[in-house]
Design a protein around this nucleic acid. Structure first.
Lengths: 207, 207, 207, 207
DNA sequence: CATGAATGAGCATTCATTCAT
DNA sequence: CATGAATGAATGCTCATTCAT
């Protein structure tokens, strides 16, 4: 019988990643043993080492993988251009929707930075910074245009990301609100947080 | 003859709490061994068990202690009354200042909930809920008064807490901004996030 | 490719059982550490846990195993029928011979009942009761036939077992008397202990 | 206020001995910690070391003490003289009654020999031997007089002691039979075990 | 591609014991 | 006479990892 493309091995590796995301999210990186992970996958512990040289490498790999897919997804997202408020809303909506759908991976990414050895850490930190760069750019352009009030760009960007990511701490699939509703609510909060406080001039000035 | 009040024992217990907060925050609860903790305190591992019956009990004790002191501090805080926007700003400023000054304890409290056994967990969850209750109350009153736009109260409260707490992830003592500056910046963001969007009527109505 | 049947694993497990019987008998269950046991077997302590999930389970397993083999051996023993004195002598001889040859296992079985958790305990107690049942049966039939004087059946059965088992406390292979001699001596004592006291009628009656 | 004769200290020491007998009997010497013992007595663990230099010394002390009191009690016991069967019955009755009333101490004495260091061990072994000497003497005289059938003196003595002591393994105060009933039953068994099998000569010889 | 057996270090916890007070 | 604090070694057990098969 013909083998599936990518063969057994590829399927096993995918199963390891999935199981690791689930277990690391629930019990923490240090709280999951290779034996437990192997059991979830349905192999012996030794077999995991065919796919990842160490437990730490598995974690770093998962985290980098997640961030790269996040960046790709943002690239692929249809986005408004040259309209910072619309862009910010789009970013917030995208961020919440993407994160709510991938709670486990996100949780691991945000919680287990401290479990990384220094060289893995800087690789991951660079990817995260790359993902947050467009947000800083949107805020900067909106501020220059007088649409946003951003007294401190880096702090504001980090505060918004913290708020938008916080949703993964409590949102559950099948909860009261679906991903779209959560995305809209958070987009409104993010937009409000930085909106320039006095659009009153609009009453009097032609501008 | 009576022992000196506050003798060795009390000092050792305090040292354990301090060292535990520091180490748990940096390496995670599961990432710190009792041996490592004892070394930091300057005793042998066995001595820790004179003060806390298990490692888990030490964690739960620290978390409950932190939350009780947080609740007490908020009680003691001079607060504006009957002015939701001012109250929200006060809450945000208090929260950021308190949290930035106690980064380790906060971090442990927000990260290690999953390390708690169920009964410890519910005790801690109740304390956290008690702390967030005044925020929900402020938002509710502000919304009723038309000062805030709060389409979903619980989600908004959690989003604001996530934003205000996020600062502990990156703020360092001696960083570019001091606690007061960070408090002001976050208070403005929080207020903006829920501020009712159209004060425009002021242009047209006499009100 | 299939592993050799009875490979390393099976040999290691057998070695653990043997070493455990020897060490538990000499130093008591609580007096033997898993490290010490592993050393005797020639492996690291952790390796023991591939074969027995806990130290307690190892003990219970050994005890149940011993009792099952004892029951099987008694089943397989050629026995006189319908002649209680001969049956009692056969039981006594069997018991002493079997026990003298397996001093360590017997000693552990009789001494370490208290080290068992309740569920393990009742399993072992049931097996012991099953082994002593035939003895009670022999005594009962002999008493009914007037061949034995048994004023209290359970007490007598326990007293006999205590006497017959006591030999394991001091008998050593290569001692003054071999297993058969010990068996005969104890059989005579047991028989005497319950023999109906007055065969005197033989003097006067023709019977 | 006048101190009780023997003062606090003597009472504490007695309490330690009592608690130790109870706990060692139930959980084994190695199964009882000095802390647990101290708790039972109502003092801190350190206080035990005022009375016994080590845990091992406490055990040896208890065991020697028990055997000395046992020897003294046998000395003080009113005994038949020059009538081996009556003497054996008296010994058996005494042994069972004394042992049933002091189950904990007896149990510890018989079980924990192996927990003794060599020098303590030989001291205890000598005392036990001294206690069993009269039994061997009775058997020897009875055999010489043709009243007993004793093909092997040391084995018979040990077998009888094993039988008579076995009662402590299951007898409970308040059980179906009281100490006297148990003593009588065991005396009859012991006597029967060694009684010369054929008193028939009495039929024919004037003797 | 995976197993089954094992290692050696480490874990949380408990121990008998000491000693200043 | 006793406590409260601590030690240092040991306990049962789990871990990430290795490797012959």
């Amino acid at each position: 019988m013909a083998r599936t493309i990518g063969s057994e091995g590829a399927r096993t590796e995918a199963a390891i990643r999935e199981a690791a995301a689930r277990l690391f999210a629930r019990h923490g990186f240090e709280g999951v043993s290779m034996r437990r992970l192997a059991e979830e996958v349905g192999v012996q512990a030794g077999a995991l080492y065919r796919y990842f040289p160490t437990k730490q490498a598995l974690l770093a790999d998962m985290m980098a993988d997640h961030l790269r897919r996040l960046l790709d997804a943002w690239e692929a997202e249809p986005k408004p251009r040259a309209d910072p408020p619309a862009e910010l809303a789009a970013f917030a909506r995208f961020h919440v929707r993407y994160h709510v759908d991938r709670r486990d991976e996100v949780f691991v990414n945000y919680m287990e930075l401290r479990s990384l050895a220094p060289d893995h850490f800087s690789q991951i930190a660079a990817l995260r910074d790359a993902y947050e760069a467009p947000l800083r750019d949107i805020l900067a352009r909106g501020a220059r245009a007088g649409q946003f009030h951003v007294p401190d760009l880096p702090v504001t960007a980090m505060a918004l990301v913290a708020m938008l990511t916080g949703v993964t701490r409590w949102a559950r699939p099948g909860g009261r609100l679906d991903a779209d509703a959560l995305a809209d609510l958070h987009a409104a909060l993010a937009l409000g947080a930085v909106r320039a406080p006095h659009p009153e001039p609009s009453c009097f000035t032609p501008a």
